[in-house]
């Protein structure tokens, strides 16, 4: 019996999409005020589609694995779908996370949202103000 599911361990030990994108279209960095984990997302966007995504994470196994899984879930997807990604969906895709580790997976959701908002802002694209709420939340957490 280990702390994490096999899937978490796989994504943690062999993270997908780890790294940086030079001249990204959007960048989001969020920190977890509670435990101190930090995650950064880089996006390349073409025709409202996430053409490429990379991440860097300072955090535990759960934070790294959820970063990896989240990037897999949004790569090649339309922005509007990526915005709907929840931490529950990330955790489910990882076959679950221990309850006290769920907060580490929230980072992925927030970092993606923050990167997309960065893209919208930089490119003067109007966006649903509801999204700003999520962003305030991110900043709060920094």
């Amino acid at each position: 019996m280990s702390l994490y599911s096999e899937k978490v361990m796989d994504h943690f030990k062999h993270p997908r999409n780890v790294g940086v994108i030079e001249n990204p279209d959007g960048v989001g960095e969020v920190g977890n005020a509670k435990c101190g984990d930090i995650m950064k997302i880089y996006l390349k966007i073409e025709n409202d589609i996430i053409a490429d995504v990379k991440f860097e994470t300072f955090g535990c196994g759960s934070a790294i694995a959820s970063s990896s899984m989240a990037t897999e879930l949004i790569k090649g997807k339309p922005l509007k779908d990526a915005l709907k990604l929840t931490n529950q969906a990330v955790a489910e895709a990882l076959d679950g996370l221990p309850a006290y580790k769920m907060h580490c997976s929230v980072l992925a959701e927030q970092a993606i949202r923050s990167a997309i908002l960065d893209y919208y802002t930089k490119h003067n694209i109007p966006f649903d103000p509801e999204l700003l709420k999520a962003c305030e939340h991110c900043e709060e957490d920094e």
Binding site: M9, K34, F58, C60, G61
Partner: peptide
């Protein structure tokens, strides 16, 4: 620049059992 739990898990993978005072 790094977090202790991820360090623990990766060295455990190499057969080293240790512990950490990380928040995680």
């Amino acid at each position: 620049g790094i977090e202790g739990e991820s360090l623990l898990l990766l060295i455990d993978d190499k057969g080293i059992c240790a512990s950490s005072g990380s928040a995680c």
